[in-house]
């Protein structure tokens, strides 16, 4: 019976040979694999939905597809307790400051899954005046799922990709156990258009320049310096 079962990927893959008489009693693994196994089967998504993709996400969490099979059934309504942010739907310019704040409030390790065309690249609203064309312009995205909307099975496939990503991480290399603080992402400001604080230097440099003189109003402007023209 045990021979037919698929091999457990966590146990006895550390590269050490276990003698046959001890196989019932001893299992050798690496710390990374144990650590990653614990993390990959307890990814708690944050409970928030933005648009129609959220309906598919709700369907995925319900009993037909059942996220609980992956240990993800605990949808947390607080960013402090969640590991995964499923950006499910169109990200409007009014919503992106809140999304960045929620991302900043999540404790490490944290993952972002961009669900559907709108969240990944703007989708049909890419040219819209009020839509961010891709949430990855603001928060680092780990997995992208194309589709409009992705079916529940496509979302499950994306969640399994998140698990794959968790498996590939090593306890010695992850950013949240390094020395030093992880910088927060500055929250964009909602104005007449969205303002990203990371671009403040560029905006200041651009606005401090003198306004270009229109060519039609002053055809000699490039030839004569402005000081000479006023005197």
């Amino acid at each position: 019976m045990t021979e037919n079962r698929p091999a457990n990927p966590t146990v006895n893959t550390a590269g050490y040979e276990v003698p046959p008489e001890l196989r019932q009693n001893i299992a050798i693994t690496t710390l990374d694999k144990i650590w990653n196994m614990g993390r990959r089967y307890s990814v708690w998504p944050m409970m928030f939905g933005l648009a129609c993709c959220a309906i598919e996400m709700i369907c995925t969490a319900a009993s037909r597809y059942d996220l609980a099979r992956f240990g993800m059934e605990v949808m947390r309504p607080s960013p402090r307790q969640s590991d995964l942010m499923i950006v499910s739907g169109t990200v409007t310019k009014k919503m992106i400051p809140q999304i960045v704040r929620l991302y900043n409030q999540m404790p490490e390790p944290k993952y972002v899954l961009s669900m559907g065309a709108c969240a990944s690249g703007g989708g049909p609203f890419k040219e819209g005046y009020n839509v961010v064309s891709g949430v990855d312009q603001y928060v680092p995205v780990d997995v992208y799922i194309p589709g409009c909307p992705p079916t529940p099975q496509a979302l499950l496939n994306g969640l399994m990709k998140i698990q794959e990503k968790i498996d590939s991480e090593s306890i010695t290399k992850v950013r949240w156990y390094r020395k030093g603080e992880i910088p927060e992402i500055p929250v964009p400001l909602l104005g007449p258009d969205i303002i990203d604080p990371r671009e403040n230097a560029m905006i200041k440099e651009y606005t401090s320049k003198p306004a270009p003189v229109p060519l039609a109003a002053n055809p000699q402007a490039p030839a004569t310096p402005p000081a000479a023209a006023t005197s």
Binding site: G121, P124, C148
Partner: peptide, 30 residues
């Protein structure tokens, strides 16, 4: 595919039956 909204108009309008809609949905990428 991050803009495509899966509406199927391309397949509807193609006069040569050259573009069709696929069934494969397992397309998540990093």
């Amino acid at each position: 595919v991050d803009i495509c909204m899966n509406c199927g108009y391309c397949a509807e309008y193609c006069p040569f039956d050259a573009i069709k809609m696929d069934h494969d949905y397992e397309l998540a990428t990093f």
